[in-house]
Amino acid sequence: MNIELVLFLVLGLLAVVSALMVVSRKSPIAATMFLVMHFMALGGLYLLLHAQFMAVVQVLVYAGAIMVLVVFVIMLLNLGDEQSLSEKVTKRETSGIALSMLLGGALIFAVTRAVRPHTSDAAAAALNNGTIEAVGKALFTTYVFPFEMISLVLLAAAVGAVVLTKRHLV
């Protein structure tokens, strides 16, 4: 057992268990806290893949910014626990879970039969691929147009959020 496998198993188990907790918790705040844990575990997995910049952005943007927003909204709405979880599972939920299992089976079937892209020189390139220098260089040269376009998406979202929460539109 090498260290990479051990780390993968620990982080992967943490990610799966916290994801299950997000789906099964009654209280929205508890679900949010488990989601933060899930994002942290995913950040660790990105580090394991040598994508350091992505790991940092994952923790900053997801665990930091987005989850703060979610917690704010939950606190504003003053929600209680969800009741329907204690009742027995409905027909709709059973068929939903069955459909999802079908989807999961298909996904796992597909990915285990995917072509193996792992080559030794690609793995050597991967060591420098995730650094902030490599990502920054790609982002501001080859992919500068999508980078500028995505800022328009953010602007539209910010304007949209303000308009949606405004009480009386002029």
């Binding site: 090498n2 990479e4 496998l5 993968f8 992967g12 990610a15 799966v16 994801a19 299950l20 997000v22 789906v23 929205p28 997995l45 893949l49 040598h50 929600l79 969800e82 329907s84 599972v89 939920e93 939903g96 879970i97 459909l99 999802s100 299992m101 989807l103 999961g104 996904l107 796992i108 990915v111 285990t112 995917a114 193996r116 892209p117 792992h118 793995a123 991967a126 060591l127």
Partner: peptide
């Protein structure tokens, strides 16, 4: 050094995606 086969990551991500899909279908909140 990326010694694990890529399938490990792909299966893990499929499982997480599946859990998310179950949540979207079954929850009401």
């Amino acid at each position: 050094m990326l010694s694990l086969p890529i399938e490990y990551y792909l299966v893990l991500s499929a499982v997480i995606f599946l859990i998310g899909a179950v949540g979207v279908i079954t929850r009401r909140n």
